[in-house]
Amino acid sequence: MRRAYRKEPTLPDYRLGITSPIVTRLPGVAGEWEATAGIAELADIAAAADELGFEYLTCSEHVAVPTAIAAQRGGTYWDPLSFFGFLAGRTRTIRFLTQVLVLGYHHPLEIAKRYGTLDTISGGRVTLGVGVGSLREEFDLLGVEFGGRGDRADDAMRALRASLSASEPEYQGTHYEFGGSIVEPCAVQQRVPIWVGGRTSRSLRRAVELGDGWVPFGLGRSRLREMLDAVEVPHGFEVVLGAGPLDPEDAEGTAAELEKTRSAGATIVGVTIRASSADHYIGQLRRLAELGLKG
């Protein structure tokens, strides 16, 4: 009698980005190993992800999380510019996604200069994930006005579009106005992708009207599908939805989770990966890639 072997499922050419471990440690999500891991482990992980063809690595931004809130949101948030600047020289193709920069914490020209420099260093691999911010206590700590932040964010996005790839940017808006100055280096990409984070219908409208993609969080798949069906998404617009934590050793469960995420409207899936060490994490990346990354 011939023995029947169970065939592992193959993913249908997914585009997968990585929610970076170590640099952001969320309670209940981060593994214990991440508390003692550092830049050496991150460099190895980034090199493996780059080699395997993953779309991007992420890094979030919080400047100062109040102690009372850290138990819920976490207190470890590496600075994205420092993190990505280090990895730019150790990778070749993987992109660097800020997920997300809080627009109200920065002048648009500050972002244009800093991330234009990173785009130059990395050979055009920056994607700006931006958001309006939701942590009032952090706004207060930084002396930034919390009220009206949505309108300021809209104007900041328009200002960024006018300045990211321009050596002599000019802009006149409702909150920002500049011209007659040189900002060099600027981004080498003719159009730096700007993806908008958030979980509201307004964030999706902001993304469609002013950005190139949407990176929502904290929403169920059915709600995401409803929100996307309610708008006309432009051609080439990216919908970046999260999945995980995934255990690629469970190939069947991983394939099902990713397919559900794509069915909700994802053009790219941002994965969180379950692992017990940096070496195990790299092994999990390889298993995930073997299931079928889009080449």
Rank of each mutant, 00 (worst) to 15 (best):
R3L: 15
P9A: 10
T10F: 07
P12K: 11
P12V: 00
D13C: 10
Y14D: 00
L16A: 08
I18A: 01
T19I: 15
T19D: 08
S20D: 10
P21W: 01
P21V: 09
P21H: 11
I22E: 01
L26I: 14
A30Y: 12
G31T: 12
E34M: 02
A35E: 13
A37P: 11
G38V: 14
E41N: 03
D44Y: 07
I45A: 10
A47F: 07
A47K: 12
A48C: 15
A48P: 09
D50V: 12
D50P: 14
E51A: 09
L52R: 13
L52T: 11
G53S: 08
Y56P: 00
Y56A: 01
Y56K: 03
L57I: 14
T58A: 05
C59G: 07
E61D: 08
E61R: 08
H62N: 12
A64H: 04
A64R: 07
V65W: 05
P66A: 10
T67P: 14
A70S: 14
Q72L: 14
Q72S: 15
Q72A: 15
T76M: 08
W78L: 10
S82K: 06
F83V: 09
F84I: 09
G85E: 11
G85L: 04
F86C: 11
F86I: 02
A88K: 03
A88I: 00
A88G: 01
G89Y: 06
L97K: 05
Q99A: 15
V100P: 00
L101H: 05
L101K: 05
V102Y: 01
V102I: 15
Y105A: 02
P108F: 07
L109M: 13
E110W: 09
A112D: 11
G116E: 01
T117C: 05
L118G: 03
S122R: 02
G124A: 12
R125E: 01
V126P: 03
T127W: 06
L128G: 00
V132N: 03
S134N: 04
S134C: 05
